[in-house]
């Protein structure tokens, strides 16, 4: 029996804190952890801006209490997605941009603005704002998120189970959101019955897939 305990070998020397095995194992499996990390920052930038924009969209669904409740679920769950993945960015040796404008500018999905013309000072006229137009903005925002997280699932499948697990959890909820807004828009705009297939959450922003193992209780 050896007198000294042997550490496992690999591309990271024993005791070396300048590298992370958690990142190198991803690289060894064919995914560039830096490229993945940057894509994650773009994706959670979209979740964060969506959380902001949904706040405004929800406000303007005045008098449509059922629509407001559903939008609130989606809004809070998008925030939960941001909260879920932020630690992963740092694990992969990245960080959030210091300037929130940079964070918003690099978001991988379009700004989900209230669908009415803005003037030069950012003011907007809500006189002709239609509920169905808001629902369409919500729907297309969810569709963008589905595409984004599907790409991240593709990128990490078989190479980075930790990020893949997060992405597939988020994807589950984004698909719920799309189904909700398809149902609401179909009825509101076309008077068509197009069921989502499920009910609203038990509590606002339950996030049943992304908050069942939370990093903390604040999200």
């Amino acid at each position: 029996m050896a007198n000294e305990k042997e550490h496992g070998s690999g591309s990271v020397e024993p005791g070396d804190t300048s590298k992370r095995v958690g990142a190198e194992v991803i690289r060894e499996r064919g995914v560039d952890p830096e490229e993945l990390r940057e894509k994650l920052i773009d994706a959670i930038g979209a979740e964060f801006t969506t959380y902001y924009y949904y706040t405004n969209l929800r406000m303007h669904l005045a008098g449509e209490e059922d629509y407001k409740e559903i939008t609130e679920d989606a809004r809070l769950e998008d925030r939960a997605h941001f909260e879920l993945v932020v630690p992963r960015v740092y694990e992969l040796e990245g960080s959030l941009p210091n300037d929130i404008r940079d964070f918003a500018d690099r978001a991988s999905c379009p700004d989900a603005e209230v669908p009415t013309p803005m003037d030069d000072s950012g003011g907007f006229d809500t006189e002709d704002l239609a509920v169905e137009d808001i629902l369409e903005v919500l729907l297309e925002a969810e569709r963008c998120a589905i595409r984004t997280w599907s790409e991240i699932c593709d990128m990490t499948r078989g190479a980075d189970p930790r990020t893949y697990d997060m992405a597939q959890r988020i994807l589950n909820e984004e698909m719920d959101h799309e189904a909700w807004f398809i149902e609401l828009l179909s009825k509101e705009r076309d008077d068509e019955i197009n069921p989502a297939g499920h009910f609203a959450r038990g509590e606002p922003g339950d996030a049943p897939y992304t908050k069942n193992n939370p990093f903390n209780d604040s999200a």
């Binding site: 773009d42 991988s108 999905c109 379009p110 297309e140 569709r143 963008c144 595409r147 984004t148």
Partner: peptide, 11 residues
């Protein structure tokens, strides 16, 4: 390659 498919992310 394409992420957002809304002419935004430029991937």
């Amino acid at each position: 390659t394409a992420d957002c498919q809304q002419g935004w992310c430029i991937t």
